[in-house]
Design a binder for these strands. Structure first.
Lengths: 66, 66
DNA sequence: TTTAAATGTAAAGCAAACTTTACATTTAAA
DNA sequence: TTTAAATGTAAAGTTTGCTTTACATTTAAA
């Protein structure tokens, strides 16, 4: 699963800490999701999409797992 | 988080087992998601949306947690 | 009305999402 | 060029998504 969080976060001029606060997760979680270390939960994905005013599908690119 | 899986599954004439097979989870997992016992992972949500040819936002209704 | 399919649910265990703490590295402003 | 903010990352622990096994209940077809 790829995502456009880093780009959008920059466009919205938010630090990882700012974004973490908005979506109510830790800064490390934002970093990990952004870097593709793991996928967010569905609720977290919804909150991210809300912050960036876009759909989950616009934020995340699903690629069938291996 | 509410969802329309039961309705859509009926419309597509799929059993919980059928759907489980399609999205590659266990039947119990489909049942639990359908009954709102827990939220699916983001990859599972993507696969569900793909089966029903709709968006994740059309399938799941996000409600801020308590 | 009997039988089979479908659904509901529970327990034990594993895996992944997330936390906190902590520290090292990069970036950018003074 | 020093300093602070921002980012990267790691370890240990908690929570939750999901599995398998197992069985009970509901639904529907014969």
């Amino acid at each position: 699963m790829k995502n456009n969080i880093k780009t959008l976060r920059a466009a919205f001029q938010l630090t990882q800490s700012d974004l973490a606060e908005k979506i109510e997760v830790s800064r490390q979680t934002v970093n990990a999701i952004e870097k593709g270390k793991f996928d967010p939960s569905l609720p977290t994905a919804f909150r991210l999409a809300a912050v960036f005013n876009c759909s989950i599908e616009e934020l995340f690119i699903y690629e069938s797992e291996e």
